[in-house]
Design a protein around this nucleic acid. Sequence first.
DNA 1: GATGAATGAGTATTCATTCAT
DNA 2: TATGAATGAATACTCATTCAT
Lengths: 176, 176, 176, 176
Amino acid sequence: MFATKGFAQTTVRDIADAAGILSGSLYHHFRSKEAMLTELLSGFLDGLNARFTEIVESGVDPQADLDGLIAESFRTIHRERLAVALYQNEASFLATVEGFEFVAERSRDNEALWIRVIEAGQASGAFQASLDPALTYRFIRDGVWSTVSWYRPGGRHTPETLAEQYLKLLHAGILA
Amino acid sequence: MFATKGFAQTTVRDIADAAGILSGSLYHHFRSKEAMLTELLSGFLDGLNARFTEIVESGVDPQADLDGLIAESFRTIHRERLAVALYQNEASFLATVEGFEFVAERSRDNEALWIRVIEAGQASGAFQASLDPALTYRFIRDGVWSTVSWYRPGGRHTPETLAEQYLKLLHAGILA
Amino acid sequence: MFATKGFAQTTVRDIADAAGILSGSLYHHFRSKEAMLTELLSGFLDGLNARFTEIVESGVDPQADLDGLIAESFRTIHRERLAVALYQNEASFLATVEGFEFVAERSRDNEALWIRVIEAGQASGAFQASLDPALTYRFIRDGVWSTVSWYRPGGRHTPETLAEQYLKLLHAGILA
Amino acid sequence: MFATKGFAQTTVRDIADAAGILSGSLYHHFRSKEAMLTELLSGFLDGLNARFTEIVESGVDPQADLDGLIAESFRTIHRERLAVALYQNEASFLATVEGFEFVAERSRDNEALWIRVIEAGQASGAFQASLDPALTYRFIRDGVWSTVSWYRPGGRHTPETLAEQYLKLLHAGILA
DNA sequence: GATGAATGAGTATTCATTCAT
DNA sequence: TATGAATGAATACTCATTCAT
């Protein structure tokens, strides 16, 4: 519900109704509405970081690493669609909220990891040296992760076709 | 304020305080909080559609058109940063709100216009034929417009450098 | 508008809109919303009392007087329908409002006048002596004046047919 | 409070104050201010209709039925004075309000029931044939029910004396 | 582990009235 | 005479949270 309606727009009563209990009873399980958000987001971010780290640590070369990160991103969008949407929608708001510093931290870790891969690719001659690594990272990140706003499992696309199409565009560009 | 805090998170009192009047006095100027949002969004979307249409109608070839649309997007992000952020944040929520049908309509118009340009480029041989036009449009749109979430005027980048970097990546791809 | 929507439910803006000016401008003509009500009600009540007094003062016998008062009531309902409705709806509320003491006073004057006629009729042997004069007055008053809530000029009834039907019932009763 | 001050003039805070809780807490018990009105009115109207129906169904002849309906009306004014006042004051306003259609329906049912009794009395020769049944109903209804605006339990009158006096006037008329 | 009643701060909106222009 | 901007108090309603049971 946080993902689809937004955290602020979701009432504790909404959640309790969906759970089949009264709103007051939720406080037996969570200390606050924010605590529910924390649990959802930290679980998601921990898992994502672990998988990203694993990809890079066991990687062979920068291009394979970048392709792997992108493919894993699309798989994550497929597997944890609502968590991704929640993160996309609320991350900027949470950046300033006390107790949610871990969200910005995890984001910075991810950014550093991706940029290191891009820079390694430029150093090895695999990637164009004239591209700004930070900028390139953001363009890729936004293009990939925004997919969550329109991707629907069971629709025309699978995580695999999305990755394939995206990588084709990213590798060789749009020009024939 | 709608752009930075979100529409629902912005109170009428916030706005009135910023305007230096009492919250009730705002209703002399706007019939409702939603009416303020309508005025902001419809003005922005009308202008954007007009400029996009002008670019395509006076265009010479598909590649120049696409480059022009992208450059205009970055200029719009620079010039109307808050309106763009507002649109990015609220468009999906507004899709279901009565009275805001015009937002989804304008979005569909834009999408159709961009996709026509991509298809024309494929037909003329300028763009790779194996790319899915709708998917390519969305990857580009998201990569370009998400820039608004981190772009700050007066920072390291200008709309021109952003467009230049983005087009370099888009044209030839990341591989050397 | 006071008669149809109620005084409290009618806004100063409603009145100004109907008058084709802005609400603030009404205060050039009336000191307050209550002042408008005063003007409407006092005019109505003054006229009604004058006509009732005239009927009784120039009357010949109690039955003719009572019939005359009733016929004049139905004519008033026809001629000043909205004023009557306003009075019926707001009188009890106004009884406690400062500045509207004249409404209760006029009502008491009327009541005394009608009761005198009934008592005179009982004294002369024209009316049944066993009826409680005050109670009889109230039954008649309510039966007659409540007509305003459903009477519509141009409908099935005229003030004359209403008076005729009412007097037939009142004079001889319902039993055959 | 709805009966004495009017529904629109009664604030939710008034009610909460009288209940000794905060205004927001009322919404734990009622979904809206209108829901409170609905509960009050539907209970009253259901009971009244049931008693009226019972009187007519177990009745012996039209005159006894009519007398019974009138006596029951005065008893209801005594027993449920505030509910009657509420109904008298708000019925016309509620006729147009969504969700309160049941009020007009119940009123129409009552009207039809009373008129059938009057027409039966005319057919049997008990009531004067020259009286308009619908008109006679309205004169009686208004004379009887308006009593609520001035009746006070514990005062000079009881429901029994009121019924007796009213029926004397209605049966034989005012003339000696 | 859940209920249900209550809190208290807040939210958009309404409206009679004022007043400089 | 009228405007239009503003006030300030009030209004119905919302909602995260608490807590005795």
